[in-house]
Amino acid sequence: MRKYLIQRLLHSLVILLGVSVLVFTLVELAPGDIVDSMISPEMFVTPEVKEQLRREYGLDEPAPIRYVRWLGRAVQGDFGYSLASRRPIRDIILDRLPISLQLVGFALVISVVLGIGTGVIAAVKQYSWIDYLVTLFAFSWLSVPGFFLGMLMIYIFAVRLNWFPAFGTSTAGAENPFLDRLHHLVLPGVTLGLELTAALTRYTRSSLLEVLHSDYMTTARAKGLRERVVIVRHGLRNALIPIITVIALRLPYLISGAVVIETVFQWPGLGFLTLTAANQKDYPLIMALALAVTVVVVASSLIADIAYSLVDPRIRYGD
């Protein structure tokens, strides 16, 4: 087990290193740099001034040197300064990370509750109208672009019904900041969570069906246990194992979705920041963000694997 863990950790490190090289290379290949994007189209600045700015930002050194230098500092948590805002990138990311985590966490909770709930119902009532309805909804959510859903949500629940704020994370001078935040979280959280909800519904349904038809369930039923007890105690517990993994492995999708949803709802998290950074060609920030997000994903898949090995004794390691 320990050997496996070490192996798994090393493997994660290799991935991160690879991603860092990949991201750095991409940034190198891109046309234009921060100096170009800093200069607004209505201004004219002489090429000499631009050269001087490039020197100031250290953009004139060869790429490998900059990579090694960057990586050396990144390992110590120092990602340098954002070229656009001149703030330390670590501060920017630490500012934004909690905001994104709130959104992703909220979406996660919503989808787990809704997804597993409807999945169980659909599985238990297989082939009933409720099963079809759930399946239809699950498919529908997977088929509508997230941004479009978000815009409809804003229109219906914010503009028309005025139940929730249309954007942002807080109201100036709110009395109860916690409730205010929760109020702001509902629309983006639900919109972001719908895709995962749909996926979880389908996984729960098929996974539970598989378990329900297995021999030991038949045995359990034969023992005369009540159907509800059978489903919850034996069925769901076994079906949950792969579902936990699905959740962990779906995280990249959730984070990807957050880019769009954060943009639609003006949620100032990492996703929103990614888009801004990409548009501004803020390369140090782009590199740091890509790496930070990958760390989150790699870590969650690591945790999923470990959790998995703990709950499922059937998995053998070392092969």
Partner: peptide, 13 residues
């Protein structure tokens, strides 16, 4: 490696 990077983030960049 590629599976670990959120696809859409890379797509945007």
């Amino acid at each position: 490696m590629f599976m670990s990077i959120p696809m859409f983030v890379l797509l945007i960049v």
